[in-house]
Amino acid sequence: MTTPLTANVPSGRRPRRVGIARIGIYAFLLTSAAFFLLPLWIMVTTSLKPRAEVWEGNILALPAEFTVEPWIKAWSEACTGLDCNGISVGFWNSVQILIPSLVLSILAGAVNGYALSFWRVRGANLLFGILLAGAFIPYQVFLYPLVRLFSQAGIYNSLACIVIVHVVFGMPIMTLLFRNFYASLPVELFNAARIDGGGFWTIFTHVLLPMSAPIIVVATILQVTGIWNDFIFGLTFAGRENLPMTVQLNNIVNSTQGERAYNVDMAATILTALVPLAVYFLSGRWFVRGIAAGAVKG
């Protein structure tokens, strides 16, 4: 029955035990960090090695003979089927898809969020509820009917088609973000603008939009990474001429005939990851905020 005593009076052994615990904590954290960094490390080192070294050398080792040739090849010469123009084609396609999708989906989210949080339109909450639940449904459930609708409208396999798809499937999360943001603003602000005679659009453009900068940043981070990393929509709706970078990357790597050029593959892979990684490293805490807010997207 000495437990209460030892609990009240720390014994001399305690600091050493803490020391061991500290070492254990750091050992675990550093091992985990190594696990997360390992694939990135081998991607980078492989992409900087000449072909022979990839086949003979150690996968973890730094390149003995440093070369950027695989990067140049990946960017401008890698082949998808018979086209050998490199992953740059996919890069520019992704940029073309990203910009209109980003602007339109944020705009739609902002207008929806504003209408839902300040204007009591009957039935609007029910619509919003269905929209949010829809965010959880696997895309495979919607794909075929959408393909039919788009081909009937004559825009299947086009830039317009893929942009519409991104706006539609970005709508739940964008609307949720802006609705929650506007709901956190004081309602007096809105009432004052109403008394001054502001209409629906005037209040939106003159009062609320100028205050929305923080949430627009979060929405941008979320949509840039989401749209850039999309694979299934690009594959289904973009058409041959507009295949995004992820789809082209997969075609380059997984449809090669004969001996594979792993160094070029890895360079192309890193190039594809570069935009979202840049967003991630530059945005820091904002990215985590975006994830926390966008957790519903899954």
Binding site: S32, A33, F36, L37, L38, P39, L40, I42, M43, T46, I59, T225, W228, N229, D230, F231, T246, L249, N250, V253, Y262, D265, M266, T269, T272, A273, P276, L277, V279, Y280, F281, G284, F287, V288, I291
Partner: peptide, 22 residues
């Protein structure tokens, strides 16, 4: 934290190809 979370920023296609190689 940055190290633990960065894979989440990448496309699953990129993740798949990186692990396929490793």
């Amino acid at each position: 934290r940055t190290v633990f979370l960065f894979p989440h920023a990448m496309s699953l296609v990129v993740t798949g190809l990186a692990w396929q190689w490793f």
